[in-house]
Design a protein around this nucleic acid. Structure first.
Lengths: 212, 212
DNA sequence: GCAAGAAGTGAATCAGGATTCATACTTTCA
DNA sequence: TGAAAGTATGAATCCTGATTCACTTCTTGC
């Protein structure tokens, strides 16, 4: 007999799995998904490549999980903002600002989540999460409609537009190439303008410019 | 001596190169860039793989060129719409509608151009072209400002938002997965709603709802 | 202490395309 | 016609990582 499923063992397993995920996450934060290879990860975790496969069926699963962890954090942050007190318009504005600020804070990660070319299993999660962001926005839009703050015919589509607009306007400046060219200072200015533009655009679109 | 650079020879060369590009384009139209492999392309063109390398330094260059050809066509179409007579608001509306309609017409291609994971050389062109679309929108925005139709502080950023919104709202329904699930009829309805949403959103954002 | 079964190892293998290159074919022109 | 030089061929090779698996090292219960 050997190695039974004692709670401690299970816990240790979980812990190692988590540790691997954290290291993988760190790789992505540092250099995007391109940086995430099984050998490198194994080395970072100080285990053999084969051991990775005791925790994950393959690279796709692992990468997808890393993606989900990171994205879920963003979704939760946004959810929190949207759950706060205040009019839909106010919350929308704060949501956008928070989103942009977070992306700016960890550009490489934001870029990896939003725009880096990734393999299909990860891309699938990306679609899911974009959907999730959109759903959050859509919910606030519906609340705003219900409260008579503004009127939107297809909240879900408008929400998708918002998500797209945010992504696009961030991706340019976030992309590794762009970052290589601009100074920190310029980049901060960019953030301010981007936030202002997004807020103005969204509230304007809702015919709620003045509430802001 | 042999095979001098007679005009006919050059022309034949050009013709073959073009033919290859057209076939490559066809591959992409059919199955995205994933479908574009050197062996498959060579077979389609009925030449040896090695011969491809007489025309292109490598796959990246070839794929990038295909991407550019296809994108340039879209840019030109949009440019044409924007160059037409009419107020900025009218042209903007028509630009959006045209863009969406074209994407809908060739979904697989649109998806490949907008959202398919592609290799870095192609991704680079994608950024350039997104920039190009944005620049077209920005120009119209500036004209509208100049004409006093509306006022926008950072036309370029707003333009980027437009491009992002259009892409995002199209990508969902355009993605191969989504397409597998919905009927033609549903998809047509989607297009109508998407166009309506985009137009309303953009004109609303510009405070130009009523001009429409 | 030891046998049985888990877990860990990492060099070897595999996969799937891109790329090369020795060889064969064409064209040109003296 | 044949030597020279460009062009085409496509099987073989290379590349880059993911994945495997025979073997070693643990852990446990007796």
């Amino acid at each position: 007999m050997a190695y039974r499923q004692t709670p401690e063992r299970l816990a240790r397993d979980q812990a190692q799995r988590l540790h691997i995920l954290q290291l993988a996450h760190a790789q992505v934060v540092e250099g995007g998904f391109a940086q995430l290879t099984m050998q490198r990860l194994a080395k970072a975790a100080d285990i053999a490549t084969g051991t990775l496969y005791r925790h994950f069926s393959g690279k796709g699963e692992l990468a997808a999980e890393v993606f989900c962890m990171a994205s879920q954090r963003e979704v939760d942050a946004l959810k929190e903002v949207f759950a706060a007190q205040g009019s839909a318009v106010q919350r929308l504005r704060q949501g956008v600002e928070r989103f942009a600020a977070r992306a700016w804070d960890s550009r490489q990660l934001a870029w990896a989540l939003i725009a880096e070319p990734v393999d299909p299993q990860v891309e699938e999660q990306r679609l899911r999460y974009r959907e999730a962001y959109a759903e959050l926005f859509a919910q606030v839009l519906r609340e705003g409609c219900a409260a008579g703050e503004f009127s939107v015919q297809y909240p879900h589509l408008v929400a998708a537009c918002f998500v797209g607009a945010i992504s696009e306007v961030l991706v340019g400046p976030l992309s590794p190439q762009a970052r290589a060219q601009r100074s920190e200072h310029e980049v901060d200015d960019d953030l301010k303008r981007v936030r202002a533009t997004l807020v103005e655009l969204f509230l304007g679109a809702l015919g709620a410019r003045e509430h802001a």
